[in-house]
Design a protein around this nucleic acid. Structure first.
Length: 512
RNA sequence: GGGCCUGUAGCUCAGCUAGGUGGAGCGCCUGACUCUUAAUCAGGUGGCCAAGGGUUCGAAUCCCUUCAGGCCCGCCA
């Protein structure tokens, strides 16, 4: 059984109408680990839904988190914003949105393109609506207990002045220290490092629980039954451990079923990306991996297994594997060893598998066609020469379009050189006495009236190579040389068949 | 120092919960297709299941130890 189904049963056993939560802290540039979290949550959601249960996936955006420091990618002017909540800082690109909106945007786009079905909740709104008020109240009233729990769980020396809640200074917009004696629900006075003294209302967006308490407070607020999180939180004495006790003893709730997941390692197997100059980023992974395949990649292995994202040729294998599972699924028969992977295929579309098998174009073929074509329509035209494209649905076309975009992005920044080529717009200049000239002439003549298919083209080449004594190997190389300027390339017969006959014949004649 | 996870074919991974002659894909090799490297098909090669010990009639699977790798243990989310 697939792990998502195992979890789904466990979750439903606990609550027939469960809530699954997950979240992100958009303080910086998105990474694929965050995506794994979203996809893991979504897969469990859809597995629960398939059992026939009502289920909700809540996606929390922690935009009340303060900007911890000025990261390297931020302008120096952002020094002044350090310490402020990221929902109150302007976007670094000068746009209209906030800092948090700026960094979460690509992520929400990705979540959207991956078709994750979740309720997006901005943490600052929860504060603004007073949703945290009870938890803040409990934190103040049971502060000693909270400190004791943190002391026991983390083994740290806890300051008796530990503040579970930090008011937001109305003057400088940074988090300040509360003055405990002044607390009287819903108000607490504070003294800020900037010298300002004021009063904040815990029912408004005027302060924030610290992470270790905010997390369990959310479990209580939403009645969270299960939550995926990175294994950093899962360490002994980590925030999950302390959260378990805090939610029970301070907030009077129950912790969720934990779904710890391993991190994703990005290995730039191919060349480094031009624009970033460094290894693969999360956005790169999203841009070069078809969304359904990215889903599949996370779902095919257990969450606790680390994933090495292979941005080289491995990505082609991953797409091929996905397509193979798709075929198996529609054939309705597969080996036991593929059980989990076929199920992962279904979950990768959130259990909304198309009724009929989508049109598949082999990804490696697509890779070649994209390099020959000038845009999507042209690529379709080329594909149409060798593939039967009749009966393509709207969904088929948009999938093809998305995949081509991914291939292009991959070719542009990550593909190994030996799979890249471009068709030369003009014939290269060859020496007068180039030994291949007679071969080009012979091959051109044969192609002029041969049937235009891969086999015939190839046959013509063999004949021409034999007649002119150049030999097969050199014959092939000679053709690659004048078409793409390399000595190797895609399988030649099918490759030339994808092109216009006149173009090929003219090119060969030009070189003869 | 403490914790969690991982270690099965060259590579990516199933199989372990409920022990019963080790699997898949890719790669590789061979063959077919008048033919090739990168879209086809068929067949084949391939592993002391990290190491050692224990339990058992029987262990990849359960227990213990060791080794290797990854990650985490900051009022940081």
């Amino acid at each position: 059984m697939h792990w998502a189904d195992v979890l789904a049963e466990e979750i439903v056993g606990r609550d027939p109408e469960p809530t699954i939560a997950t979240g992100i802290s958009p303080t910086g540039i998105i990474h694929v680990g965050s995506l794994r979290e979203a996809i893991t949550g979504e897969s469990v959601r859809s597995a629960v839904a398939e059992l026939g249960n009502e289920v909700r996936l809540v996606y929390l955006i922690d935009d009340m988190d303060p900007l911890r420091r000025r990261y390297d990618f931020l302008p120096e002017s952002f020094e002044e914003h350090v310490g402020k909540p990221i929902c109150m800082i302007p976007s670094p690109d000068g746009g209209p949105g906030t800092y948090a909106e700026h960094f979460v945007k690509p992520f929400l786009d990705a979540v959207d393109s991956l078709n994750v079905k979740c309720d997006i909740v901005w943490t600052h709104q929860l504060y603004a609506e007073g949703k945290f008020a009870k938890a803040v109240d409990a934190s103040f009233k049971k502060r000693d207990l909270a400190i004791e729990i943190l002391r026991e769980v983390t083994g740290r020396d806890m300051d008796d002045n530990f503040a579970p809640y930090n008011p937001l200074c109305e003057k400088c917009q940074r988090y300040a220290k509360p003055i405990f004696e002044t607390y009287s629900f819903p108000y607490v006075e504070y003294e800020c490092g900037c010298g300002h003294r004021g009063r904040s209302d815990v029912e408004k967006m005027e302060g924030k629980l610290v992470w270790r308490l905010e997390w369990p407070a959310k479990w209580k607020i939403f009645g969270v039954d299960a939550e995926p999180f990175g294994k950093d939180h899962a360490a002994a004495g980590g925030s999950f451990d302390s959260g378990v006790r805090l939610v029970r003893e301070v907030f009077g709730g129950e912790p969720p079923i934990p779904i710890p997941y391993e991190f994703v390692q990005l290995k730039g197997v191919g060349q480094m990306h031009k624009s970033t100059g460094s290894a693969v980023t999360g956005m790169d992974a999203i841009n070069m991996t078809p969304p359904e395949v990215l889903n599949y990649m996370f779902l095919r292995v257990n969450p606790q297994r680390a994933i090495d994202y292979d941005s080289g040729l491995g990505i082609l294998d991953m797409v091929d594997e996905y397509d193979r599972m798709e075929r198996l699924f529609f054939e309705g028969e597969w080996a036991e060893v593929d059980d989990a992977s076929v199920r992962a295929y279904q979950l990768a579309q959130h259990n909304e598998v198309p009724k009929a098998q989508p049109k598949q174009v082999p990804y490696r073929h697509l890779m070649n066609v994209v390099q020959m074509a000038d845009g999507f329509d042209d690529a379709l035209r080329i594909l149409g020469r060798t593939e039967d494209l009749d009966g393509m649905t709207q969904a088929d076309i948009s999938r093809l379009r998305a995949r081509m975009r991914c291939v292009l992005y991959w070719l542009d920044g990550f593909a190994p050189e030996n799979v890249k080529f471009s068709v030369l717009s003009e014939a290269p200049e060859l020496p007068e006495d180039d030994p291949a000239r007679p071969f080009y002439a012979s091959f051109a003549a044969k192609l002029a009236d041969a049937p235009w298919d891969a086999d015939s083209i190839n046959g013509a080449l063999i004949e021409a190579a034999a007649e002119t004594g150049i030999g097969n190997k050199k014959g092939y190389q000679a053709v690659y040389r004048v078409v793409i300027g390399k000595t190797s390339g895609p399988r030649l017969g099918p490759f030339l068949a994808d092109m216009e006959r006149d173009f090929v014949v003219d090119r060969l004649k030009d070189c003869s």
